[in-house]
């Protein structure tokens, strides 16, 4: 029953100015059923609480000497299996070609967010949606996470178009 916690220290990545989200999700995907994750970060990773909460993890937070934070994520009863499958998409594995393409660059905010969420509700688990935006969708990402979807996004080489891919997750039914 007591599987030792997997430990992940992302402080070196954060201090070097890197983005550890992919690595955290990879670690979560690699957890065996019943296993928890001990995460060390330079700040309190509040949005992760809802991302992993939606996948059935509870969290305990502790501030360490020197201002760093330790968070222990533990799977609740139903979680482990779902969590692994729902988050696997955030790692480097290949996704199927997008089924739908949205060009939301000319839309007034928050219409791009509304269109993407509406589209995801009509799609099936594992399907992928692609959307073009004129800025990083800051408020969309936590909502996607809460609904159990995975995403990859970034600015195109032109520096002004933000492209996001959303893969519909299995956590969909578990949300709000």
């Amino acid at each position: 029953m007591t599987v030792p916690l997997l430990e992940l220290d992302v402080r070196p990545i954060l201090r070097a100015g890197g983005e550890p989200f992919g690595q955290i999700m990879q670690a979560v995907a690699s957890l065996v059923p019943g296993q928890g994750l001990r995460l060390l970060a330079t700040f309190k990773p509040v949005p992760l609480f809802s991302v992993l909460g939606a996948k059935g993890f509870s969290h305990e937070v502790r501030e360490l000497v020197g201002g760093d934070w330790e968070v222990v994520f533990r799977p609740t009863d139903v979680a482990a299996g779902v969590a692994a499958s729902a988050t696997a998409a955030s790692d480097g594995s290949d996704w199927p070609d997008p089924l739908h393409h949205l060009d939301n660059r000319e839309l007034d905010p928050p219409e791009p967010m509304v269109r993407i969420l509406t589209a995801t509700e009509e799609m099936k688990t594992g399907e992928v949606l692609s959307a073009l935006l004129c800025r990083e969708p800051i408020f969309l990402l936590p909502e996607l996470a809460k609904r159990g979807h995975a995403w990859r996004g970034g600015f195109e080489p032109d520096g002004t178009t933000y492209k996001i891919l959303v893969r519909i997750g299995t956590g969909k039914q578990a949300t709000v």
């Binding site: 928050p110 219409e111 967010m113 509304v114 969420l117 509700e121 909502e143 809460k146």
Partner: peptide, 21 residues
């Protein structure tokens, strides 16, 4: 208006008909 809209309707966007901001 935006924060109130996001707080209220964010969780159900796309799932049901919601007002615009």
């Amino acid at each position: 208006a935006f924060l109130t809209w996001l707080e209220c309707y964010g969780p159900v966007l796309g799932k049901t008909q919601t007002p615009r901001v």
